[in-house]
Each structure stands twice: as structure tokens, then as C-alpha cells.
Computed example of a mutant assay.
Amino acid sequence: MFKKFLTIFTLTFSLANVALAEQANPQIVMKTNLGDIKLELYPEKAPITVKNFLDYVDSGFYEGTIFHRTIAGFMIQGGGFTADMHQKDTKEPIQNESNNGLSNLQGTISMARTNYPHSATSQFFINAVNNYRLDGSNRRPGYAVFGKVTDGMDLVVRISRSPTAPKSGHRDVPKQPVIIEKITRFDAPSKPE
């Protein structure tokens, strides 16, 4: 009788762990030429944004892009330009999800956009400090937070302090390119090289 109970308990516990694992937030690693940044994404709070970002990740879009705008005491922006400042073609813009209850705190990742609220495509930024002024409100849209750095925040701050110069009509471009070599999911099966 006890053995049967133990078997049922173990099976139930195992199934519960599988269910929790399936509901876990996506984890990604951003490999750069300066080191790795690990992030957790929040699909429950920003479903459109997370799906859009992961579509770009899964397609390999970000490979060879750079952090093309870095400002100390503010943020690092990337995901749209190659090292020669060629802007990559993107998919259609997405709906702004900035009023999702998440704030642009230090270490959060948000979608970059133009002055038009619903213009975000592939570019993102990681907040090097708390940037509450970028949050949305009932009166105005902000910048949609969709995840947070879990490891590598020291690298984010170091990148934000990179010496910069104007390049190809853009300001605040690091003099030494900070290249995103690859972004992958933690749980993604490894591809043969």
C-alpha cells in the first residue's frame, strides 16, 4: 500500500514539475564579443513583444548586429545595425505594450521605437540605470519592458561607458564595435556547427 502511494506521489510530483517547467519564463543568452548577458523574458506581461523578440532570436536575425548607441548613466541600444552601420530589414512594427505594469528599472530590457508609439521592430535597449521617465502612463505611451538581465549587468554598465563618436549619421556609437555574436534560448536544442 505504501509503495503504491509513493509511486502515485512521485508521478504526481514529476508531472507538477513538468507543468511548472513548461510555464517558466523564457531564458536567453546574448553572446557578445565582450562577454555574455543572460536575460529572463516576461511573456505574461508583454506577449506581443516577447513573441516578436523571440521570432527575431530564433531566425538568427541578431547575429552580427551591434550595440550602436551607448550612453553612460542611461542605456545600451542594439539589434538593428551591423558593424558597418548597415540597417537590417525588419518585419512589420508591433503594438506598444508599455502600460503592462513593468517599469524601466536598471537591468530591464525594453523595445526601442521612434516617436510613433507603435513603431518597434527589432531594436531593443537595456537600461543601465532606473529610467522611470521612459515608462508609459494613461496619458502617454512609454517604452515596453519585456524582460530583465539575470546575469551580466556589470557588462551592460561597462558597455554603456564605452567611448563613443558620431558614425554614419548616428551619435553615441561605440568607437570599438560591441558585436552581438548570437542570441539563443537556454532551452533551445544546440545546433550542429
Rank of each mutant, 00 (worst) to 15 (best):
N138L: 11
G73S: 12
A120I: 07
G80I: 07
P26F: 09
K31I: 05
S14P: 03
L54P: 06
Q27N: 07
F186L: 06
T114R: 10
R158P: 03
L15I: 14
P163T: 13
I126K: 00
R140Y: 03
G79E: 04
R140N: 09
M30E: 04
Y116E: 14
Q87R: 09
S110N: 05
P26C: 01
S190H: 13
I28H: 08
Q106L: 05
F5L: 14
K191V: 06
T108H: 00
I37V: 15
N100E: 01
F74V: 01
I8H: 10
D84G: 08
L155A: 07
P141A: 15
T184M: 09
A24L: 09
G136C: 06
A72I: 11
D172P: 10
S103Y: 04
S168C: 04
G147H: 02
T49A: 09
K175D: 02
A21H: 12
S168L: 07
E181I: 08
P177R: 03
Y62R: 04
S162V: 13
T90Q: 12
S168I: 00
H86P: 00
L105R: 15
N138M: 12
E97K: 00
Y143V: 02
E40D: 07
R133D: 13
R139E: 14
L39V: 05
N17I: 11
S162W: 15
P166K: 04
T70C: 15
A165Y: 14
L15S: 12
T108P: 01
G169K: 12
Q176H: 10
G35Y: 06
F13I: 05
N96H: 06
V145A: 02
P177D: 14
F74K: 02
P117H: 08
K88R: 15
K167C: 06
I76N: 03
K4N: 10
A83D: 11
P177E: 12
P192Q: 11
F67Q: 04
